[in-house]
Simulated assay, not measured.
Amino acid sequence: MSNFLRITEVMKMTGIAKSTIWLWVKEEKFPKPIKLSPRITVWDEDSINEWKKEIQC
Rank of each mutant, 00 (worst) to 15 (best):
W24Y: 14
M13A: 08
V25P: 02
E50M: 09
V25F: 07
W22F: 15
N3H: 08
N49P: 00
M1A: 10
G15E: 05
K18E: 14
K12Y: 08
T20R: 12
L36F: 09
D44V: 07
D44R: 08
K18N: 10
R39E: 04
V42E: 04
I34V: 13
E45D: 09
W43H: 09
F30N: 08
W51S: 03
I48L: 03
W22K: 11
I48S: 01
S47D: 13
W43C: 05
W24E: 14
F4G: 04
K12N: 14
S19A: 13
C57D: 15
V25K: 09
E27D: 08
S37A: 05
I34Q: 12
F30P: 11
L5R: 03
G15M: 07
M13I: 00
L23Q: 13
K52S: 06
V25E: 06
T14P: 01
W24H: 13
F30D: 11
I16E: 08
F30M: 11
K52D: 00
M1T: 06
K53T: 12
I16A: 02
R39C: 01
P31V: 02
T41C: 10
I48R: 00
K32D: 11
N3D: 10
M11K: 12
E9M: 03
V10Y: 01
W51P: 04
T41S: 12
L36N: 02
A17V: 09
T8M: 08
K53Q: 14
T41P: 06
P31Q: 06
L36S: 01
I21D: 07
E27K: 12
L36G: 02
F4N: 07
Q56V: 11
M11C: 13
L5G: 05
E9Q: 15
A17H: 14
F4L: 14
P31N: 03
K52E: 05
R39W: 02
I7Y: 05
K32T: 12
P31Y: 05
M1G: 07
I21P: 05
S37K: 00
L5H: 05
I55D: 08
E54M: 15
S2H: 03
C57G: 15
W22P: 01
F30I: 08
I48E: 02
V10C: 02
I16C: 06
E27T: 00
D46F: 03
Q56T: 13
M11A: 09
L36V: 01
K12I: 07
K53D: 11
R6C: 02
C57I: 15
T8A: 11
N3G: 05
T20D: 03
L36A: 01
K26H: 13
I16S: 04
M1C: 02
S19Y: 10
E27Y: 00
T20P: 06
I21A: 10
N3C: 04
N3L: 11
D46Q: 12
I40F: 00
I34R: 10
K18F: 07
I21L: 06
P31E: 05
P31A: 06
S19K: 13
W51A: 08
S47Q: 10
I16D: 07
P33C: 12
N49M: 11
I48K: 03
I7M: 10
